[in-house]
Design a protein around this nucleic acid. Structure first.
Lengths: 235, 235
DNA sequence: CGAGATTACTACACACCGTTCAGAGTTGGC
DNA sequence: GCCAACTCTGAACGGTGTGTAGTAATCTCG
Protein backbone atom coordinates (compact mmCIF):
# COMPACT_ATOMS: atom_id res chain seq x y z
CA UNK A 1 0.00 0.00 0.00
CA UNK A 2 2.96 2.27 -0.46
CA UNK A 3 1.44 3.64 -3.61
CA UNK A 4 -0.83 6.63 -3.79
CA UNK A 5 -3.59 4.25 -4.88
CA UNK A 6 -4.77 1.63 -2.43
CA UNK A 7 -3.75 -1.94 -2.92
CA UNK A 8 -6.15 -4.21 -4.65
CA UNK A 9 -7.00 -5.97 -1.42
CA UNK A 10 -7.65 -2.74 0.46
CA UNK A 11 -9.99 -1.61 -2.29
CA UNK A 12 -11.90 -4.86 -2.31
CA UNK A 13 -12.13 -4.71 1.43
CA UNK A 14 -13.55 -1.20 1.35
CA UNK A 15 -16.07 -2.20 -1.29
CA UNK A 16 -17.19 -5.26 0.63
CA UNK A 17 -17.46 -3.27 3.84
CA UNK A 18 -19.72 -0.67 2.31
CA UNK A 19 -21.73 -3.33 0.49
CA UNK A 20 -22.40 -5.04 3.80
CA UNK A 21 -23.57 -1.78 5.31
CA UNK A 22 -25.67 -0.95 2.27
CA UNK A 23 -27.43 -4.31 2.36
CA UNK A 24 -27.94 -3.98 6.10
CA UNK A 25 -29.54 -0.57 5.63
CA UNK A 26 -31.78 -1.94 2.91
CA UNK A 27 -32.89 -4.85 5.06
CA UNK A 28 -33.52 -2.43 7.89
CA UNK A 29 -35.69 -0.26 5.67
CA UNK A 30 -37.65 -3.35 4.68
CA UNK A 31 -38.19 -4.95 8.06
CA UNK A 32 -37.00 -2.64 10.79
CA UNK A 33 -33.73 -2.55 12.66
CA UNK A 34 -34.36 -5.98 14.14
CA UNK A 35 -34.26 -7.66 10.77
CA UNK A 36 -30.56 -7.07 10.28
CA UNK A 37 -29.14 -10.56 10.06
CA UNK A 38 -25.55 -11.42 9.31
CA UNK A 39 -26.65 -14.63 7.65
CA UNK A 40 -29.13 -12.86 5.40
CA UNK A 41 -26.55 -10.28 4.39
CA UNK A 42 -23.96 -12.95 3.69
CA UNK A 43 -26.51 -14.96 1.73
CA UNK A 44 -27.27 -11.97 -0.45
CA UNK A 45 -23.56 -11.41 -1.07
CA UNK A 46 -22.99 -15.04 -1.93
CA UNK A 47 -20.88 -15.68 1.14
CA UNK A 48 -21.19 -17.67 4.30
CA UNK A 49 -22.06 -15.96 7.55
CA UNK A 50 -18.62 -16.38 9.02
CA UNK A 51 -17.06 -14.29 6.27
CA UNK A 52 -18.68 -11.16 7.65
CA UNK A 53 -16.38 -11.47 10.63
CA UNK A 54 -13.49 -10.44 8.40
CA UNK A 55 -15.09 -7.01 8.21
CA UNK A 56 -16.95 -6.58 11.49
CA UNK A 57 -16.00 -8.21 14.74
CA UNK A 58 -19.60 -8.92 15.60
CA UNK A 59 -23.12 -7.94 14.76
CA UNK A 60 -22.95 -5.20 17.36
CA UNK A 61 -19.93 -3.76 15.59
CA UNK A 62 -21.92 -3.65 12.37
CA UNK A 63 -24.76 -1.87 14.18
CA UNK A 64 -22.29 0.57 15.68
CA UNK A 65 -20.86 1.37 12.26
CA UNK A 66 -24.34 1.81 10.82
CA UNK A 67 -25.29 4.05 13.72
CA UNK A 68 -22.30 6.27 13.06
CA UNK A 69 -23.18 6.51 9.36
CA UNK A 70 -26.77 7.37 10.16
CA UNK A 71 -25.74 9.99 12.68
CA UNK A 72 -23.55 11.55 10.04
CA UNK A 73 -26.26 11.61 7.41
CA UNK A 74 -28.65 13.24 9.85
CA UNK A 75 -26.02 15.78 10.84
CA UNK A 76 -25.47 16.55 7.15
CA UNK A 77 -29.16 17.22 6.66
CA UNK A 78 -29.44 19.43 9.72
CA UNK A 79 -26.32 21.43 8.94
CA UNK A 80 -27.55 21.91 5.39
CA UNK A 81 -30.85 23.22 6.71
CA UNK A 82 -29.01 25.93 8.63
CA UNK A 83 -27.54 27.22 5.40
CA UNK A 84 -31.00 27.78 3.93
CA UNK A 85 -31.82 30.46 6.51
CA UNK A 86 -30.00 33.77 6.84
CA UNK A 87 -27.87 34.25 9.93
CA UNK A 88 -29.92 37.17 11.15
CA UNK A 89 -33.23 35.25 11.13
CA UNK A 90 -32.93 32.78 13.98
CA UNK A 91 -36.60 31.91 13.97
CA UNK A 92 -36.36 30.81 10.34
CA UNK A 93 -33.31 28.79 11.22
CA UNK A 94 -35.05 27.02 14.08
CA UNK A 95 -38.00 26.28 11.82
CA UNK A 96 -35.72 25.01 9.06
CA UNK A 97 -33.89 22.80 11.52
CA UNK A 98 -37.12 21.43 12.95
CA UNK A 99 -38.58 20.74 9.52
CA UNK A 100 -35.40 19.10 8.30
CA UNK A 101 -35.37 16.93 11.41
CA UNK A 102 -38.93 15.78 10.86
CA UNK A 103 -38.56 15.30 7.12
CA UNK A 104 -35.54 13.12 7.68
CA UNK A 105 -37.20 11.13 10.45
CA UNK A 106 -40.35 10.45 8.43
CA UNK A 107 -38.34 9.51 5.36
CA UNK A 108 -36.04 7.23 7.35
CA UNK A 109 -38.04 5.93 10.29
CA UNK A 110 -35.81 2.92 10.82
CA UNK A 111 -32.70 5.05 10.91
CA UNK A 112 -34.47 7.20 13.47
CA UNK A 113 -35.18 4.10 15.54
CA UNK A 114 -31.64 2.91 15.15
CA UNK A 115 -30.38 6.08 16.76
CA UNK A 116 -33.08 7.05 19.21
CA UNK A 117 -34.76 3.81 20.16
CA UNK A 118 -33.70 0.31 20.96
CA UNK A 119 -31.35 -0.15 18.03
CA UNK A 120 -31.67 -3.89 18.09
CA UNK A 121 -32.49 -6.72 20.51
CA UNK A 122 -29.62 -6.92 22.94
CA UNK A 123 -27.40 -4.25 21.47
CA UNK A 124 -25.41 -2.13 23.86
CA UNK A 125 -23.79 0.99 22.46
CA UNK A 126 -20.09 1.29 23.21
CA UNK A 127 -19.16 4.04 25.62
CA UNK A 128 -16.87 5.80 23.17
CA UNK A 129 -16.77 5.25 19.47
CA UNK A 130 -17.56 6.80 16.13
CA UNK A 131 -21.18 7.15 17.22
CA UNK A 132 -20.16 9.46 20.06
CA UNK A 133 -18.26 11.65 17.66
CA UNK A 134 -21.18 11.87 15.25
CA UNK A 135 -23.51 12.61 18.14
CA UNK A 136 -21.30 15.60 18.85
CA UNK A 137 -22.02 16.95 15.39
CA UNK A 138 -25.74 16.89 16.14
CA UNK A 139 -25.17 18.56 19.45
CA UNK A 140 -23.05 21.24 17.78
CA UNK A 141 -25.79 21.90 15.25
CA UNK A 142 -28.32 22.39 18.02
CA UNK A 143 -25.94 24.61 19.94
CA UNK A 144 -25.44 26.73 16.84
CA UNK A 145 -29.18 27.05 16.58
CA UNK A 146 -29.56 28.26 20.13
CA UNK A 147 -26.48 30.44 19.87
CA UNK A 148 -27.97 32.27 16.91
CA UNK A 149 -31.25 32.70 18.76
CA UNK A 150 -29.80 33.53 22.16
CA UNK A 151 -29.47 37.30 21.79
CA UNK A 152 -33.19 37.55 21.11
CA UNK A 153 -34.20 34.65 23.30
CA UNK A 154 -32.25 35.69 26.36
CA UNK A 155 -34.58 38.54 27.04
CA UNK A 156 -37.59 36.26 26.97
CA UNK A 157 -36.39 33.95 29.71
CA UNK A 158 -34.65 34.13 33.01
CA UNK A 159 -31.08 32.96 32.69
CA UNK A 160 -30.54 31.79 36.22
CA UNK A 161 -30.48 28.34 37.66
CA UNK A 162 -27.81 26.70 35.57
CA UNK A 163 -24.08 26.37 36.06
CA UNK A 164 -21.43 24.75 33.90
CA UNK A 165 -21.12 22.02 36.50
CA UNK A 166 -24.61 20.86 35.61
CA UNK A 167 -23.34 19.43 32.34
CA UNK A 168 -20.93 16.73 31.38
CA UNK A 169 -17.36 17.90 30.74
CA UNK A 170 -17.41 16.95 27.07
CA UNK A 171 -20.47 19.04 26.36
CA UNK A 172 -19.09 21.98 28.33
CA UNK A 173 -15.80 21.84 26.45
CA UNK A 174 -17.52 21.84 23.09
CA UNK A 175 -19.95 24.59 24.02
CA UNK A 176 -17.33 26.92 25.48
CA UNK A 177 -14.86 26.46 22.68
CA UNK A 178 -17.36 26.84 19.86
CA UNK A 179 -19.51 29.57 21.42
CA UNK A 180 -17.44 31.30 24.09
CA UNK A 181 -20.10 33.87 24.92
CA UNK A 182 -22.89 31.43 25.61
CA UNK A 183 -24.01 31.03 29.23
CA UNK A 184 -24.90 27.64 30.75
CA UNK A 185 -28.58 28.50 30.58
CA UNK A 186 -28.29 28.48 26.79
CA UNK A 187 -27.00 24.92 26.86
CA UNK A 188 -29.93 23.89 29.02
CA UNK A 189 -32.26 25.62 26.62
CA UNK A 190 -30.58 23.79 23.76
CA UNK A 191 -31.37 20.44 25.32
CA UNK A 192 -34.95 21.46 25.91
CA UNK A 193 -35.35 22.65 22.33
CA UNK A 194 -34.02 19.31 21.23
CA UNK A 195 -36.50 17.44 23.38
CA UNK A 196 -39.29 19.61 22.07
CA UNK A 197 -38.56 18.54 18.51
CA UNK A 198 -37.86 14.99 19.54
CA UNK A 199 -41.03 14.38 21.54
CA UNK A 200 -43.65 14.67 18.84
CA UNK A 201 -41.38 12.98 16.35
CA UNK A 202 -40.75 9.98 18.57
CA UNK A 203 -44.46 9.59 19.21
CA UNK A 204 -45.18 9.78 15.49
CA UNK A 205 -42.41 7.47 14.32
CA UNK A 206 -43.40 4.85 16.86
CA UNK A 207 -47.00 5.08 15.78
CA UNK A 208 -48.52 6.62 18.87
CA UNK A 209 -50.14 9.45 16.97
CA UNK A 210 -51.61 7.20 14.30
CA UNK A 211 -54.73 6.52 16.33
CA UNK A 212 -55.10 10.10 17.40
CA UNK A 213 -54.54 12.53 14.60
CA UNK A 214 -54.73 12.51 10.82
CA UNK A 215 -51.94 14.92 10.03
CA UNK A 216 -49.06 14.80 12.52
CA UNK A 217 -47.19 17.37 10.48
CA UNK A 218 -49.81 19.98 11.30
CA UNK A 219 -49.39 19.28 14.99
CA UNK A 220 -45.60 19.42 14.69
CA UNK A 221 -45.75 22.66 12.76
CA UNK A 222 -48.02 24.22 15.37
CA UNK A 223 -45.74 23.13 18.19
CA UNK A 224 -42.65 24.47 16.45
CA UNK A 225 -44.38 27.81 15.92
CA UNK A 226 -45.27 27.81 19.60
CA UNK A 227 -41.64 27.02 20.35
CA UNK A 228 -40.18 29.96 18.46
CA UNK A 229 -42.88 32.17 19.93
CA UNK A 230 -42.04 31.09 23.45
CA UNK A 231 -38.39 31.70 22.64
CA UNK A 232 -39.25 35.27 21.87
CA UNK A 233 -38.03 34.92 18.30
CA UNK A 234 -41.20 36.26 16.75
CA UNK A 235 -43.38 39.11 17.79
CA UNK B 1 -67.69 -23.74 35.34
CA UNK B 2 -71.33 -23.08 36.10
CA UNK B 3 -70.43 -22.59 39.74
CA UNK B 4 -69.73 -19.26 41.32
CA UNK B 5 -66.21 -20.49 42.01
CA UNK B 6 -63.97 -21.22 39.08
CA UNK B 7 -63.18 -24.76 38.19
CA UNK B 8 -59.88 -26.19 39.27
CA UNK B 9 -58.55 -26.03 35.74
CA UNK B 10 -59.59 -22.42 35.23
CA UNK B 11 -57.89 -21.45 38.46
CA UNK B 12 -54.66 -23.21 37.56
CA UNK B 13 -54.80 -21.64 34.14
CA UNK B 14 -55.15 -18.15 35.58
CA UNK B 15 -52.28 -18.78 37.95
CA UNK B 16 -50.02 -20.10 35.21
CA UNK B 17 -50.92 -17.21 32.95
CA UNK B 18 -50.00 -14.60 35.50
CA UNK B 19 -46.86 -16.53 36.48
CA UNK B 20 -45.74 -16.45 32.86
CA UNK B 21 -46.32 -12.72 32.69
CA UNK B 22 -44.58 -12.16 36.01
CA UNK B 23 -41.50 -14.08 34.94
CA UNK B 24 -41.47 -12.27 31.62
CA UNK B 25 -41.59 -8.91 33.39
CA UNK B 26 -38.78 -10.00 35.70
CA UNK B 27 -36.62 -11.10 32.80
CA UNK B 28 -37.38 -7.82 31.06
CA UNK B 29 -36.30 -5.86 34.08
CA UNK B 30 -33.08 -7.86 34.17
CA UNK B 31 -32.08 -7.73 30.54
CA UNK B 32 -34.38 -5.42 28.66
CA UNK B 33 -37.46 -6.16 26.59
CA UNK B 34 -35.43 -8.19 24.09
CA UNK B 35 -34.54 -10.80 26.67
CA UNK B 36 -38.05 -12.17 26.92
CA UNK B 37 -37.71 -15.74 25.77
CA UNK B 38 -40.45 -18.34 25.80
CA UNK B 39 -37.89 -21.07 26.36
CA UNK B 40 -36.32 -19.26 29.31
CA UNK B 41 -39.71 -18.68 30.90
CA UNK B 42 -40.73 -22.29 30.36
CA UNK B 43 -37.40 -23.49 31.76
CA UNK B 44 -37.95 -21.47 34.89
CA UNK B 45 -41.44 -22.92 35.28
CA UNK B 46 -40.23 -26.48 34.73
CA UNK B 47 -42.03 -26.81 31.44
CA UNK B 48 -41.09 -27.11 27.82
CA UNK B 49 -41.36 -24.15 25.50
CA UNK B 50 -44.35 -25.55 23.65
CA UNK B 51 -46.43 -25.52 26.81
CA UNK B 52 -46.54 -21.74 26.77
CA UNK B 53 -48.67 -21.98 23.65
CA UNK B 54 -51.52 -23.23 25.80
CA UNK B 55 -51.66 -19.79 27.35
CA UNK B 56 -50.47 -17.45 24.63
CA UNK B 57 -50.85 -18.08 20.94
CA UNK B 58 -47.40 -16.74 20.22
CA UNK B 59 -44.62 -14.69 21.66
CA UNK B 60 -46.21 -11.59 20.20
CA UNK B 61 -49.42 -12.38 22.05
CA UNK B 62 -47.44 -12.52 25.29
CA UNK B 63 -45.87 -9.17 24.50
CA UNK B 64 -49.29 -7.76 23.69
CA UNK B 65 -50.65 -8.94 27.03
CA UNK B 66 -47.65 -7.50 28.85
CA UNK B 67 -48.07 -4.23 27.02
CA UNK B 68 -51.69 -4.01 28.12
CA UNK B 69 -50.71 -4.69 31.73
CA UNK B 70 -47.99 -2.06 31.61
CA UNK B 71 -50.34 0.47 30.06
CA UNK B 72 -52.76 -0.18 32.88
CA UNK B 73 -50.16 0.22 35.59
CA UNK B 74 -49.02 3.50 34.07
CA UNK B 75 -52.60 4.69 33.79
CA UNK B 76 -53.13 3.81 37.46
CA UNK B 77 -50.14 5.88 38.47
CA UNK B 78 -51.19 8.87 36.39
CA UNK B 79 -54.80 8.78 37.53
CA UNK B 80 -53.64 8.54 41.13
CA UNK B 81 -51.45 11.59 40.62
CA UNK B 82 -54.50 13.60 39.60
CA UNK B 83 -56.11 12.88 42.91
CA UNK B 84 -53.20 14.44 44.79
CA UNK B 85 -53.96 17.87 43.38
CA UNK B 86 -57.13 19.84 44.02
CA UNK B 87 -59.50 20.32 41.10
CA UNK B 88 -59.15 24.06 41.15
CA UNK B 89 -55.34 24.05 40.83
CA UNK B 90 -54.70 22.86 37.28
CA UNK B 91 -51.05 23.85 37.33
CA UNK B 92 -50.42 21.58 40.30
CA UNK B 93 -52.26 18.84 38.52
CA UNK B 94 -50.14 19.18 35.41
CA UNK B 95 -47.02 19.15 37.52
CA UNK B 96 -48.19 16.13 39.48
CA UNK B 97 -48.98 14.31 36.25
CA UNK B 98 -45.62 15.18 34.74
CA UNK B 99 -43.72 14.11 37.83
CA UNK B 100 -45.66 10.87 38.14
CA UNK B 101 -44.95 10.15 34.49
CA UNK B 102 -41.23 10.67 34.93
CA UNK B 103 -41.01 8.82 38.22
CA UNK B 104 -42.71 5.82 36.68
CA UNK B 105 -40.56 5.91 33.56
CA UNK B 106 -37.30 6.13 35.50
CA UNK B 107 -38.36 3.38 37.87
CA UNK B 108 -39.52 1.13 35.03
CA UNK B 109 -37.39 1.99 32.01
CA UNK B 110 -38.02 -1.34 30.31
CA UNK B 111 -41.74 -0.99 30.67
CA UNK B 112 -41.40 2.46 29.16
CA UNK B 113 -39.51 0.97 26.23
CA UNK B 114 -42.06 -1.78 25.87
CA UNK B 115 -44.78 0.81 25.35
CA UNK B 116 -43.05 3.69 23.62
CA UNK B 117 -40.12 2.13 21.80
CA UNK B 118 -39.48 -0.93 19.79
CA UNK B 119 -41.11 -3.37 22.15
CA UNK B 120 -39.10 -6.29 20.91
CA UNK B 121 -37.27 -7.47 17.76
CA UNK B 122 -39.89 -8.05 15.12
CA UNK B 123 -42.98 -7.37 17.15
CA UNK B 124 -45.90 -5.69 15.45
CA UNK B 125 -48.67 -4.39 17.65
CA UNK B 126 -52.14 -5.57 16.69
CA UNK B 127 -54.45 -2.91 15.29
CA UNK B 128 -57.07 -3.41 17.97
CA UNK B 129 -56.57 -5.18 21.22
CA UNK B 130 -56.36 -4.70 24.96
CA UNK B 131 -53.43 -2.37 24.40
CA UNK B 132 -55.64 0.02 22.48
CA UNK B 133 -58.11 0.10 25.30
CA UNK B 134 -55.44 0.79 27.87
CA UNK B 135 -53.98 3.47 25.64
CA UNK B 136 -57.37 5.11 25.81
CA UNK B 137 -57.06 5.37 29.57
CA UNK B 138 -53.82 7.30 29.18
CA UNK B 139 -55.40 9.52 26.61
CA UNK B 140 -58.35 10.15 28.89
CA UNK B 141 -56.04 11.09 31.74
CA UNK B 142 -54.28 13.61 29.54
CA UNK B 143 -57.57 14.97 28.29
CA UNK B 144 -58.72 15.42 31.86
CA UNK B 145 -55.56 17.32 32.55
CA UNK B 146 -56.10 19.71 29.67
CA UNK B 147 -59.80 19.96 30.39
CA UNK B 148 -59.08 21.15 33.91
CA UNK B 149 -56.56 23.65 32.62
CA UNK B 150 -58.51 24.79 29.59
CA UNK B 151 -60.53 27.62 31.20
CA UNK B 152 -57.29 29.31 32.24
CA UNK B 153 -55.25 28.15 29.29
CA UNK B 154 -57.71 29.12 26.60
CA UNK B 155 -57.05 32.78 27.11
CA UNK B 156 -53.33 32.28 26.67
CA UNK B 157 -53.56 30.76 23.22
CA UNK B 158 -55.48 31.23 20.06
CA UNK B 159 -58.07 28.51 19.66
CA UNK B 160 -58.26 28.50 15.89
CA UNK B 161 -56.81 26.16 13.36
CA UNK B 162 -58.24 22.88 14.54
CA UNK B 163 -61.42 21.03 13.63
CA UNK B 164 -62.81 17.74 14.88
CA UNK B 165 -62.05 16.25 11.49
CA UNK B 166 -58.35 16.65 12.22
CA UNK B 167 -58.53 13.77 14.69
CA UNK B 168 -59.31 10.10 14.45
CA UNK B 169 -62.95 9.20 15.14
CA UNK B 170 -62.16 7.19 18.26
CA UNK B 171 -60.37 10.07 19.90
CA UNK B 172 -63.13 12.49 18.93
CA UNK B 173 -65.79 10.21 20.36
CA UNK B 174 -63.98 9.86 23.66
CA UNK B 175 -63.20 13.55 23.93
CA UNK B 176 -66.71 14.74 23.11
CA UNK B 177 -68.44 12.25 25.38
CA UNK B 178 -66.17 12.78 28.37
CA UNK B 179 -65.68 16.51 28.04
CA UNK B 180 -68.53 17.89 25.93
CA UNK B 181 -67.46 21.51 26.27
CA UNK B 182 -63.91 21.05 25.04
CA UNK B 183 -63.07 22.47 21.61
CA UNK B 184 -60.86 20.64 19.13
CA UNK B 185 -57.99 22.99 19.89
CA UNK B 186 -57.89 21.55 23.40
CA UNK B 187 -57.38 18.07 22.02
CA UNK B 188 -54.51 19.32 19.90
CA UNK B 189 -53.05 21.00 22.94
CA UNK B 190 -53.44 17.76 24.85
CA UNK B 191 -51.30 15.91 22.32
CA UNK B 192 -48.70 18.62 22.42
CA UNK B 193 -48.57 18.55 26.23
CA UNK B 194 -48.10 14.83 26.00
CA UNK B 195 -45.24 15.18 23.55
CA UNK B 196 -43.66 17.80 25.78
CA UNK B 197 -43.50 15.39 28.68
CA UNK B 198 -42.56 12.51 26.45
CA UNK B 199 -39.65 14.14 24.62
CA UNK B 200 -37.24 14.68 27.47
CA UNK B 201 -38.25 11.40 29.05
CA UNK B 202 -37.60 9.40 25.88
CA UNK B 203 -34.20 11.02 25.48
CA UNK B 204 -33.34 10.24 29.09
CA UNK B 205 -34.60 6.66 29.15
CA UNK B 206 -32.74 5.84 25.96
CA UNK B 207 -29.57 7.33 27.36
CA UNK B 208 -29.22 10.36 25.12
CA UNK B 209 -28.93 12.78 28.01
CA UNK B 210 -26.35 10.72 29.85
CA UNK B 211 -23.47 12.30 28.00
CA UNK B 212 -24.90 15.78 28.27
CA UNK B 213 -26.28 16.52 31.68
CA UNK B 214 -25.77 15.31 35.21
CA UNK B 215 -29.27 15.72 36.53
CA UNK B 216 -31.98 15.13 33.91
CA UNK B 217 -34.65 15.68 36.54
CA UNK B 218 -33.61 19.29 36.89
CA UNK B 219 -33.98 19.80 33.16
CA UNK B 220 -37.36 18.06 33.17
CA UNK B 221 -38.58 20.12 36.08
CA UNK B 222 -37.52 23.33 34.36
CA UNK B 223 -39.26 22.35 31.17
CA UNK B 224 -42.45 21.44 32.98
CA UNK B 225 -42.44 24.78 34.76
CA UNK B 226 -41.99 26.43 31.40
CA UNK B 227 -44.89 24.37 30.12
CA UNK B 228 -47.37 25.45 32.75
CA UNK B 229 -46.15 29.01 32.36
CA UNK B 230 -46.69 28.93 28.61
CA UNK B 231 -50.11 27.45 29.28
CA UNK B 232 -50.95 30.53 31.31
CA UNK B 233 -51.56 28.45 34.42
CA UNK B 234 -49.26 30.48 36.61
CA UNK B 235 -48.76 34.19 36.79
C1' DC C 1 -71.73 -42.04 36.82
C1' DG C 2 -69.40 -42.54 32.69
C1' DA C 3 -68.50 -41.45 27.66
C1' DG C 4 -66.71 -37.81 24.99
C1' DA C 5 -64.71 -33.39 24.28
C1' DT C 6 -61.40 -30.13 25.82
C1' DT C 7 -57.22 -28.83 27.79
C1' DA C 8 -52.12 -29.14 29.40
C1' DC C 9 -48.18 -30.89 28.58
C1' DT C 10 -43.97 -33.56 26.55
C1' DA C 11 -41.04 -34.79 22.93
C1' DC C 12 -39.42 -33.98 18.74
C1' DA C 13 -38.57 -31.54 14.39
C1' DC C 14 -37.81 -27.41 11.62
C1' DA C 15 -35.84 -23.18 10.33
C1' DC C 16 -33.68 -19.52 11.68
C1' DC C 17 -30.03 -16.78 14.40
C1' DG C 18 -24.86 -15.16 16.13
C1' DT C 19 -20.52 -16.98 16.92
C1' DT C 20 -16.35 -19.85 16.69
C1' DC C 21 -12.82 -22.64 14.55
C1' DA C 22 -9.75 -25.40 11.54
C1' DG C 23 -8.31 -25.28 7.13
C1' DA C 24 -7.81 -24.00 2.14
C1' DG C 25 -6.82 -20.55 -1.15
C1' DT C 26 -5.21 -15.91 -2.28
C1' DT C 27 -2.70 -11.67 -1.88
C1' DG C 28 1.05 -8.56 -0.52
C1' DG C 29 5.45 -7.08 1.47
C1' DC C 30 10.17 -8.18 2.02
C1' DG D 1 10.15 -16.71 -3.93
C1' DC D 2 8.93 -17.05 0.78
C1' DC D 3 6.21 -16.31 4.56
C1' DA D 4 2.80 -13.72 6.79
C1' DA D 5 -1.63 -11.73 6.60
C1' DC D 6 -6.01 -11.90 4.85
C1' DT D 7 -10.52 -13.91 3.01
C1' DC D 8 -13.55 -17.26 2.76
C1' DT D 9 -15.70 -22.14 3.44
C1' DG D 10 -17.98 -25.57 5.94
C1' DA D 11 -19.14 -27.49 9.91
C1' DA D 12 -20.34 -27.15 14.54
C1' DC D 13 -22.51 -25.28 19.13
C1' DG D 14 -26.03 -23.28 21.59
C1' DG D 15 -29.70 -20.28 21.31
C1' DT D 16 -34.35 -18.71 19.54
C1' DG D 17 -39.76 -19.05 18.01
C1' DT D 18 -42.91 -22.18 16.18
C1' DG D 19 -45.40 -26.10 14.72
C1' DT D 20 -47.18 -31.30 15.26
C1' DA D 21 -48.21 -35.87 17.28
C1' DG D 22 -49.35 -38.16 21.11
C1' DT D 23 -50.57 -38.73 26.11
C1' DA D 24 -52.65 -37.89 30.30
C1' DA D 25 -55.57 -35.21 33.12
C1' DT D 26 -59.72 -32.60 33.63
C1' DC D 27 -64.21 -30.86 32.71
C1' DT D 28 -69.02 -31.16 30.60
C1' DC D 29 -73.13 -33.27 29.79
C1' DG D 30 -76.40 -36.90 29.01
Amino acid sequence: MGDATQSRRARLRAEATSEIKAIALRHMAAGGPASISLRAIAREMGMTAGAIYSYFGSRDDLITALTADVYDSLADVLEASHRTAPDDAPHERVLAHARAYRTWAIAHPDEFRLIYGDPVPGYEAPEDGPAQEAEHRLCAALLGLVAAAWPQAAAAREQGGYEWTDFQPGLVAMARSTFPDLPPAAVALCLRVWSRMHGLLALEVYGHLRHQVHDPEKLYEADMLDLIRSLGLVA
